[in-house]
Amino acid sequence: MGTFFHRNRGLTPYLLLLPGVLWLSLFFLVPLGFLGYQSLQSGIYPNFEFTWEFSNFSDAFSNYHEQLFRSFLYAGIATAVCLVLAYPLVYWIAFRAGPWRNLFLLAIVAPFFVTYLVRTLAWLNILADQGPVVELLRDIHVLGEDGRLLATTFAVVSGIAYNFFPFMALPIYVSLEQIDERMLEAAKDLYASSTQAFLRVTLPLSAPGIVAGTLLTFIPAAGDFINAALLGTPKQSMVGNVIQAKFLESLDYPTAASLSFILMGIILVGLLVYARVVGAERLTG
């Protein structure tokens, strides 16, 4: 084998790529092609026909633009919440936690040891109308007599932020942890205040982490349906809920497939714009 690689050195990169390419074509491109095929079908379950039904896209968009908009709104708020909460936390862990670093990191990841669904179901009990949290908030008059947390926009957005928090925290941590502290010392030697040192050294150096974190949080959050399904009402329904219901309940595959494509398309365009704004090199680290 060794001699084979020596003799065909030019082939090596392609051979290294091969498993990944095979994986992606089998489990991403093929299903994507099939999804595209379904999105242009017409008819009703179980008799669908391929008819280049492009109106599926315009129908899906005009019927569900509200849920699409809501998905991006909720995902955007949740991403912002994650960023605001995660940055100071991992900053502290990276620079101040010393030997306890790993323990704190473990604490961030620990909720992931429980499955996504169960984690979200737990909030159903925590936020229940007759539960201790709501009762306490009613007692201290944060919530009105009839106020509730469950089945509100607040619950859905908080659920998303909670569930995707580690995706924001960990990339930022990695980028902060790599910062050479001597750079900060150098900044101070050059008469930078702490704030200036943070704004001109730490923040730019952690930008790749922020960019990666926002993408890792925002993209899955925009397609999420579990949080809206369990913690929301029909008024909080997101596009993920519509796609899930169309695929798995009403068996309306063409609409579900075209909605998936619309969601993907919007995310892709958003990603390109984002890359332009922040600079493509930040996306790749």
Binding site: P234, N241, E249, S250
Partner: peptide, 14 residues
Amino acid sequence: NDDFITTWQGVTGQ
């Protein structure tokens, strides 16, 4: 009736 089913799904947030 498919129209009924689709309309109903819309109302129930699906």
